[in-house]
C-alpha cells in the first residue's frame, strides 16, 4: 500500500507500521532448476573450452548441491546461496582494494610528498596558530547563481 497517494492526496498513515509489501519470491524449486543447469553449462565450457579442471569441478559439484538442495532439502540450497553471496562480496572487496589501494598510495601519497616539498598543508595543521586570529574572512557571494552550484 502506498503511504501517500498523490492522486487522491490520501495519507495512508497506518501503512507506516506495516511491513512493506514483498514481491512474491520465485519458488526455490524453479530457481534451482534454472541455476543448476546454468552452472553446469559454465563448468562444461571451462572444462572443454579452456582445459581447466579444478574450477569447473567445484562449479559442477556446487550445481549438483543447488539442484539437490532446491528439490529435496532447502537449507542446503540456502547455505549454497549464502556462500555464493559471501564469495561475491569478497570478490568486490578484493577488487576494490586491488584497484583503489595502489591508486591511493600513488596519487595521494605522491601528492602529499609534492605538497610537503612546497611547504603546503591543505589541513593547516601548524600548532599552535601563529596568527592573532583563526577567523577566516568569507568571500562575498558575487552572484546568486552561486546557489545553483554544487561547489
Amino acid at each position: 500500500m502506498k503511504i501517500h497517494d498523490e492522486k487522491t492526496n490520501q495519507w495512508e498513515w497506518k501503512a507506516l507500521g506495516a511491513p512493506a509489501p514483498v514481491k512474491k519470491a520465485m519458488a526455490i524449486q524453479t530457481k534451482a532448476l534454472i541455476q543448476a543447469p546454468a552452472m553446469l553449462g559454465i563448468a562444461a565450457l571451462m572444462y572443454f573450452g579452456f582445459d581447466h579442471v579444478v574450477v569447473p569441478s567445484i562449479v559442477a559439484v556446487l550445481s549438483v548441491l543447488v539442484l539437490a538442495g532446491g528439490l529435496f532439502y532447502h537449507p542446503l540450497f540456502h547455505a549454497v546461496e549464502r556462500g555464493g553471496r559471501w564469495f561475491g562480496h569478497m570478490v568486490i572487496v578484493t577488487v576494490n582494494w586491488i584497484l583503489l589501494a595502489p591508486f591511493y598510495f600513488l596519487v595521494f601519497g605522491f601528492g602529499r610528498l609534492v605538497l610537503r616539498l612546497q611547504g603546503i598543508d591543505p589541513m593547516d595543521r601548524a600548532y599552535p596558530a601563529a596568527a592573532e586570529t583563526c577567523w577566516l574572512p568569507r568571500k562575498k557571494i558575487e552572484s546568486l547563481d552561486q546557489y545553483r552550484k554544487q561547489h
Binding site: W97, L100, Y104, F105, F108, R112, P122
Partner: peptide, 20 residues
Amino acid sequence: LKTYFSVAPQGLQSFMMAMP
C-alpha cells in the same frame, strides 16, 4: 580529497570506506 592529500599514506582504511 584534500584530507587524503594531507595524510597519505595514512588514511587508506578511511579512503576505502568513503570512496565507494
